[in-house]
Simulated scan of single mutants.
Amino acid sequence: MDFDLQWLLWGLPVAFGLGWLASRLDIRQWKREQQESPRAYFKGLNLLLNEQQDKAIDAFIEAVQHDPGSSDLHFALGNLFRRRGEFERAVRVHEHLLQRADLGAAERQRAQYALAQDFMKAGLFDRAQAAFESLDGTPFETEARLALLGLHERARDWHAAADVAARLERSGTGSFAQRIAHHHCEMALQADDQGRADEAEAALAKAREIAPAAPRPWLQTGQRAFAAGRHAEALRAWNELRRRAPHAFALVAQDHARAALAADQVDAARQTLQQAYQEQPSTDLLRAIALLDPAPAERRQRLAVHLQQHPTLGAAAELLAEPPQDWAEGAVVGLKQAVTRAARPLQRYRCAACGFEAQHHFWQCPGCLSWDSYPPQRVEEQ
């Protein structure tokens, strides 16, 4: 059968023309869809920047309808729902993303992390924990572990919290030694509550080993010994606390004095407390010293000197507890300084619109520029 070349000459131009026409139709449709989708997307962004979240959500829903395959639009919509507290809708958006077969691995992990955040915000902690745990080995691993750490601490699951914190530290996220020490101190408290003294002691030993400079393990060790009547042991623990973390010693200063009285170590304890007071003066240390040196005249003299040098309300209250006729010289001056210093913040005017405080009354607030927003009364008189 002979092939007629004339059909070939006519067919090629026709096929080319039909192909060109089809491509033009596809391009026009694609351009139209692309124009409609960004228009709704940018409209949503503009409304979001103008803090019109309701309208922004409507715009993003419209954008998703025009481009249902765009994962970024779904993430934006889900985040908006979460910010508004509509956690159920946020969960549905992110679960819909996870069900898509065409979603890449990176986007799937991102959706899983967003879903875990939805559960967390909604108070569904069991589901949030499972979602965060599934992110091990992904780029969201560190964020997920930090969230898990907070979840375990909220649930007071201190063993799990310590394990997660240790993994974070091993991964190079940062130092969690002091936080882990707190976890072991909490384990010690739980063990003591349940009558497991050996376990409590082991937990405190572990805390001291993990964070030797942390104050709480030494403080709590002394408190356990003091409660058990082992006063000399308590003094050793608290002296170690003072050596390693002197700023926290005032927290147990009075118990330190009581333990010294019980252990007949008054002179050494008085010297320790006086030295601590010289380094970091406080009324707690003054009360502890007064337990070891209860002479009224010396106690009032120490209080008067402290009040003059450190005019605080706490010191003023201590002085006011003494009979006025027994006040030491200079006590009235210190009392006046303390009261004046404490009253100074209350002598200001405060804007009712923005809370801006000033020593002088303004008709127009310098902070928010509102007119007549300053009440004529000072803060303490309102």
Results as ranks from 00 to 15, higher is better:
Leu5Arg: 07
Pro296Ala: 06
Ala317Asp: 12
Asp54Glu: 15
Ala262Glu: 04
Gly334Ser: 09
Asp26Met: 01
Pro68Phe: 09
Gln382Cys: 01
Leu285Met: 09
Ile289Arg: 06
Ala225Leu: 03
Trp371Arg: 07
Pro38Tyr: 13
Gln278Ile: 00
Asn46Cys: 00
Leu115Cys: 03
Tyr113Ser: 07
Ser282Gln: 11
Ala228Arg: 15
Pro376Phe: 08
Ala290Phe: 03
Arg299Ser: 15
Thr142Asn: 13
Arg236Cys: 01
Pro296Met: 06
Ser23Leu: 10
Ile289Leu: 13
Pro376Gly: 12
Ala269His: 13
Gln53Thr: 15
Phe226Glu: 08
Trp238Leu: 00
Arg170Asn: 11
Ala248Pro: 00
Leu25His: 10
Gln309Ile: 04
Ala116Val: 10
Gln6Phe: 01
Leu25Thr: 10
Leu346Trp: 14
Phe132Lys: 06
Arg145Asn: 14
Ala40Val: 00
Glu201Val: 09
Ala227Thr: 06
Thr173Lys: 05
Thr283Met: 06
Ala253Val: 04
Pro215Tyr: 03
Glu51Tyr: 06
His231Met: 01
Leu18Lys: 11
Pro296Asn: 13
Gln359Met: 00
Ala111Tyr: 03
Ala358Asn: 12
Gln99Asn: 11
Ala15Glu: 05
Ala225His: 14
Asp326Arg: 05
Ala237Tyr: 10
Phe81Ile: 06
Ala22His: 09
Leu49Glu: 13
His306Cys: 03
Arg127Pro: 00
Lys206Met: 09
Gln99Tyr: 02
Glu381Ile: 00
Gly19Ser: 09
Gln347His: 05
Thr312Ser: 15
Leu307Glu: 12
Val164Leu: 04
Ala90Phe: 06
Phe356Ser: 03
Gln377Phe: 02
Ile289Trp: 04
Pro217Trp: 01
Ala101Arg: 11
Ala317Ser: 13
Ala203His: 08
Leu251Phe: 05
Ala250Ser: 14
Tyr277Val: 01
His74Glu: 02
Glu381Pro: 00
His361Tyr: 04
Val266Ile: 08
Leu124Gly: 05
Gln190Leu: 06
Gln52Ala: 11
Leu73Ala: 09
His310Gly: 08
Ile27Asp: 12
Tyr113Cys: 03
Lys55Arg: 13
Asp326His: 04
Leu219Gln: 14
Ala234Phe: 03
Ala197Leu: 10
Leu292Asn: 08
